[in-house]
């Protein structure tokens, strides 16, 4: 037998994973791995979790570090930009120009660039899309395919509205003088929000694919996990916007 230390450590680790039971009933089917399985006798799943769901969570964990780095970059770039702008660095002064730049210098803040009511509205739209997403998932689970399509379409639509808002915002900012190459703030702002926008766009594509599957009758209760996975991704993107909205827009 292995020595007792090993057993104790085993208990600790299993406990950390949240195990309260022995793995007695782990005869689950493979619930989403693309491992080739035999019917009713899928590969043994050690922790009884779905492979796909586990993988999605790991991916989202990885994304935390990605957006963390982008947000830090934005904050640092903003601070450095403002410092140089206020100090009158001629390579920075005039890169935005007009009233907005004057206001920025006066307030020592990038706030004059933003249109808070507009962004609040688009934040609300994205929050709402999270609601429609969970409702879509619930509808699929309950076999209510008609409603699931409605909610999926609503989610995709709300996401598209958000992207439309972002495109509008970018064009407006660009017209007001904030360019990607002009200064640090522009580079960092467009990169951070653009990265988020790309994630939303990716989500919309996935939702559209789900809609196609659903309309062909291939998205039924046994596939609810697929919807849940897309949902996880979608909510994560929403969470990131919750952070961006507060950190970038509201905190000067």
């Amino acid at each position: 037998m292995a020595d007792t230390t090993t057993d104790i450590a085993d208990d600790i680790v299993d406990d950390a994973m949240g195990s309260t039971h022995d793995l007695t009933n782990d005869d689950h089917n493979d619930h989403g791995g693309d491992h080739g399985e035999d019917h009713g006798h899928g590969p043994h799943l050690s922790l009884g979790l779905s492979n796909m769901k586990l993988a999605m969570w790991l991916f989202l964990g990885s994304e935390c570090l990605l957006f963390g780095a982008l947000i830090s970059t934005y904050l640092l770039s903003k601070v450095n930009f403002l410092q140089e702008l206020v100090a009158g660095n001629p390579y920075v002064v005039g890169t935005i120009g007009g009233e907005i730049e004057v206001e920025m210098i006066a307030q020592n803040s990038v706030e004059p660039m933003f249109d808070i009511p507009f962004t609040s509205a688009s934040s609300f739209v994205l929050l709402m899309s999270s609601l429609t997403m969970v409702l879509a998932h619930k509808a699929v689970l309950e076999g209510d395919y008609r409603n699931s399509r409605v909610w999926l379409a609503a989610t995709a639509l709300l996401g598209s509205v958000f992207i439309g808002g972002q495109v509008y915002e970018f064009t407006a900012f660009y017209r007001e003088g904030l360019t990607y190459t002009g200064n640090l703030f522009g580079s960092a702002f467009y990169t951070l929000t653009g990265f988020h926008g790309l994630h939303v766009t990716g989500g919309i594509v996935m939702l559209a694919a789900l809609l196609i599957l659903s309309s062909r009758g291939k998205l039924q209760a046994d596939r609810a996990e697929t919807v849940e996975l897309v949902g996880l991704y979608w909510h994560f993107v929403d969470i990131v916007w919750v952070l961006i909205f507060t950190i970038v827009y509201l905190i000067p």
């Binding site: 089917n29 493979d30 399985e37 796909m52 999605m56 694919a209 599957l213 596939r223 697929t226």
Partner: peptide
């Protein structure tokens, strides 16, 4: 799991 579950 199904045939098209690879989507994700």
């Amino acid at each position: 799991g199904g045939a098209e579950k690879e989507l994700e």
